[in-house]
């Protein structure tokens, strides 16, 4: 354990040359700190840079300016990369495209195999994860026998098997139906609130209802961090949100309309 545990984002920008060779900024000058055991939600319109930001957190992408420190690890340092990815787990949008193995139990073991975990420990952790994510009865099944929600549960279990400190979820529910969406959100919540091994969750989402669960909501707009506050506070600013192509949760909208049209 380092002297502090947090993600420090220091003035990062990310740019890549467009087809005319001009640099195009995806992220510009973002600074923030993410403390341990915080739960964060990130929202923003398409192309606002939220996915790019997430991919900078575990070193999949390296900022073109500024730096990110995860605990004491600089993401720009190539020698940190395995440690970094071990600490910052990542779940992607499409469950089909992130499942590597041909059976459920092996999928959970995949990350552990990569880390060189011993046979006994690996099996203990796999059993624990199968149990925790209620996938035990599928353990020897191929992943294509699972439903979309179950596949995404498997994807989360497979990342959690590596015992990350931070879990980044990039729109994990956008391809699921409402029931499964709720189930996944519940899992994310429970991971964050777990007493024995609480982790920092960073959830990118399109659904304002999902952002409500977080302690803190970051709104990205055109590559900049536009708002950073409690979700309850941010959703009051409906005018600002609308200008950034976002909407408050339905319940809040209804509440506001009722207030407008019905005189008490």
């Amino acid at each position: 354990m380092g002297p502090y545990r947090m993600i420090k984002v220091e003035n990062i920008s990310f740019a890549y040359p467009d087809h005319e060779g001009e640099p195009r900024n995806i992220l510009s000058d973002i600074s923030l700190e993410i403390n341990t055991e915080e739960s964060i939600a990130i929202m923003g319109h398409n192309g606002s840079g939220k996915t790019t930001f997430a991919r900078c957190l575990n070193g999949l992408l390296r900022p073109t300016a500024g730096r990110i420190l995860v605990d004491d690890l600089d993401t720009a340092d190539e020698s940190n990369i395995i440690k970094l990815r071990h600490r910052v787990g990542m779940v992607f949008q499409n469950p089909d495209n992130q499942i590597v193995s041909t059976t459920v139990e092996r999928e959970i073991a995949f990350g552990l195999e990569n880390l060189g975990t011993t046979y006994e420990t690996m099996h203990a952790i796999v059993d624990e994860m199968l149990d925790q994510f209620s996938l035990s009865h599928y353990r020897r099944q191929p992943p294509h026998h699972l439903s979309g929600g179950e596949k995404q549960r498997l994807a989360i279990a497979a990342v959690m098997a590596m015992r990350p400190r931070y879990l980044v979820l990039d729109e994990p529910t956008s391809l699921l139906d409402p029931g499964n969406r709720k189930a996944i959100l519940k899992i994310v919540k429970s991971l964050h609130q777990k007493k024995s091994h609480p982790i920092t969750t960073i959830l990118i989402t399109q659904f304002p209802e999902e952002a409500l669960y977080a302690d803190r909501l970051l709104i990205f707009n055109k590559g900049r961090l536009a708002l950073d506050d409690k979700p309850g506070v941010i959703f009051q600013k409906s005018r600002e949100l609308e200008m950034m192509g976002l909407e408050p949760p339905l319940t809040l909208k209804v509440h506001r309309m009722l207030k407008k049209y019905i005189k008490y």
């Binding site: 999949l60 990815r85 787990g89 992607f92 495209n97 992130q98 590597v100 590596m162």
Partner: peptide
Amino acid sequence: DDLALAMDSRCYT
């Protein structure tokens, strides 16, 4: 493409 990112993220080397 997606799969490569996911494998990288899970420390595959």
